[in-house]
Amino acid sequence: MDSGLEHPFDLGLVNYHKHPSDANYVVYRFKDKNRADHFEQLLVKDKIWYERSNPEADEKEYYLIAIHKKNFGKTQKLNYETEGKFKKPLIKSGFLRYFFVLFMIALVTLAALGYCRRNVYLEEKTRQIEQGTSN
């Protein structure tokens, strides 16, 4: 099986895992119906066979879609596309996002300038020590 499916601990970082009873299948789990429906539409469009399970009233609300492991590479791309479509930005305000980016660029620039100036200072001190005249 692909090394991408081997997870020693399921911390919820990915939304897929091996099928519990059949190692030839991979199960994708989605927390909301919109994501599951979008993923299903992509599977139908790409003509990939799948099985879908909808949650019952007393279960945790996970929509499960099982695919054969031979299609894992294709479905992983579709899964990324689905997650990307429904992903919300970490910082919702456009002003704050651009401010944060500019702030980080300024910090990196200041760090680079400080590094360069410190090298010049160290080279001057090294020259002074080599010449035997230190201040």
Rank of each mutant, 00 (worst) to 15 (best):
M1H: 00
D2Q: 05
E6T: 13
P8R: 05
F9P: 03
F9H: 08
V14G: 00
N15M: 11
P20K: 08
S21E: 13
D22C: 07
N24R: 07
Y25R: 04
R29G: 09
K31W: 06
D32F: 11
D32P: 04
K33Y: 10
A36W: 10
H38R: 13
Q41D: 11
V44E: 13
D46E: 15
W49T: 10
E51I: 01
E56H: 13
E59R: 02
Y63C: 07
L64G: 01
I67K: 04
K70N: 09
K70S: 03
N71K: 01
Q76Y: 13
Y80E: 15
Y80C: 12
K85H: 15
F86M: 11
K87D: 13
K87L: 09
P89C: 10
K92D: 08
K92T: 12
S93T: 02
S93E: 11
G94V: 10
L96P: 01
V101M: 07
L102S: 15
M104N: 09
M104T: 10
A106S: 12
A112T: 14
Y115F: 12
R117D: 12
R117T: 04
N119H: 03
N119I: 12
V120F: 09
K125E: 12
T126E: 06
Q128C: 00
E130A: 10
E130W: 00
G132W: 07
T133L: 08
S134P: 02
